[in-house]
Write a protein that binds this DNA or RNA. Structure first.
Lengths: 222, 222
DNA sequence: ATAACAATGTTATTTTATTAACAATTATTT
DNA sequence: AAATAATTGTTAATAAAATAACATTGTTAT
């Protein structure tokens, strides 16, 4: 009921942008900046200043005229919205290249969001620790997830195993899933699912490159 | 000018879905299916049948009543729209875990979109061939890109090198860029840029998990 | 002191994307 | 042969997202 507190009315796109604003802000802060204008954030993110101000309006943050937004305050507010106070634990299933890449990205950067376990079926990998993340046998998924209180699962197994992995994660009580395989998976409504498909992204780029090429060709023919 | 031929009026989201439809269709075809209903595609992709039919309407494809859509025809039409006839060559800059993961994903799957070169600065990697993709020294980026006619670049270097890598790719004449680092980059207008940020995606999942958790807590307190 | 300027915050408008509604058509059942 | 059901294709309505417009307010320059 209390919108002000839960922020559950925020547009999906705004959530994504807040995460990005925060990263830009952290960078600016580390460079000694204390305030920032909407147009500066906008330039970094390739969007318009209006969009930035609108997003900030939605989360109820006010800057000061002629000085802009207080970076530290804004970071804290965004953290307040996105992060959960107690932190959330994440598991990665599939310690191949992609799984390892994600662990590298995250290791030690977010304190409220930590990858605490990896799973794989390859005996060579089981027992290893990568960047502080132990790799367990996939058989122990349920056990470890329950024991550690892991709430989010990232699926980076080969496509053909995606759906079974998802089922196991759901059975283990996971609440959010991020599927990096190209195979769409099914989960119950109470699990939040984000599918991210690398092939689609590349094909999209290819489409627009093709389109511009043909447009150019047409222009030349005229 | 000729919308029917260039399909340059298609909504961005439709393009992305077409790529996904195609993959679902290829899978069905390989299983011996010849026709498919809109609601079948919809179920696979977690969307509504109306959405599917609307997308297909936009690309001018008609199915047959009571039989659905001819899978083979539809695959060919989508290929016609998305793929470019001569094929497009892709380069990956940064042969770390993520770069290698992408190469594994793509190797031999798409014939019209092929990764033909990788670049890195690590001498241990230069000269190796991974899944058929040779790894060159980053110094030779321009040379190889021009020589091979590579049009798309994928950036999987560490964040701090992202912007310089982008500049080099643009200078080499690349037309489309896919940035997988968490640092937003700048490119001229004539280069199509897609930024994809893994951290944002995970933070988004975390936000919705948190939101559902707090909603649940509120409900329990009542 | 006043004018010009450069910001923010908010409402209004437009654009884009999704969903609903439904007519048309054909296969199947009674 | 008529009724029913299942499906497509398309238009209309709704919802979501982005952009524009603009009033407001300090700051700086004249």
């Amino acid at each position: 009921m209390e919108d002000k507190e839960t922020f559950n009315h925020l547009p999906h796109k705004t959530i994504a942008r807040l995460s990005q604003y925060r990263r830009a802000l952290l960078l600016c802060l580390s460079r000694g900046k204390s305030h920032i204008f909407s147009h500066e954030i906008a330039t970094i993110q390739h969007i318009t200043p209006v969009q930035v101000r609108r997003d900030l309006m939605l989360i109820g943050y006010s800057g000061t005229l002629r000085k802009g937004y207080n970076i530290k305050e804004l970071i804290d507010l965004i953290a307040n919205i996105i992060d959960s106070e107690e932190g959330i634990k994440v598991a990665i299933v599939g310690m191949g290249n992609l799984g390892r890449a994600l662990i590298n990205y995250f290791s030690g950067k977010r304190h409220k969001l930590s990858i605490v376990a990896g799973f794989d079926t390859n005996p060579d990998k089981i027992g290893n620790v990568m960047n502080g993340v132990p790799c367990y046998s996939a058989d122990r998924m349920r056990e470890i997830i329950e024991q550690e209180g892991i709430e989010i699962g990232i699926i980076t197994v080969p496509g053909q195993n995606a759906s079974q992995t998802a089922n196991e994660l759901v059975a283990a009580g996971i609440k959010g899933l991020l599927n990096y395989t190209p195979k769409p998976i099914d989960v119950p409504d109470y699990v939040y699912l984000e599918e991210y498909d690398m092939i689609t992204t590349l094909e999209k780029v290819a489409f627009y490159v093709k389109m511009r090429n043909t447009e150019e060709k047409i222009r030349e023919e005229e």
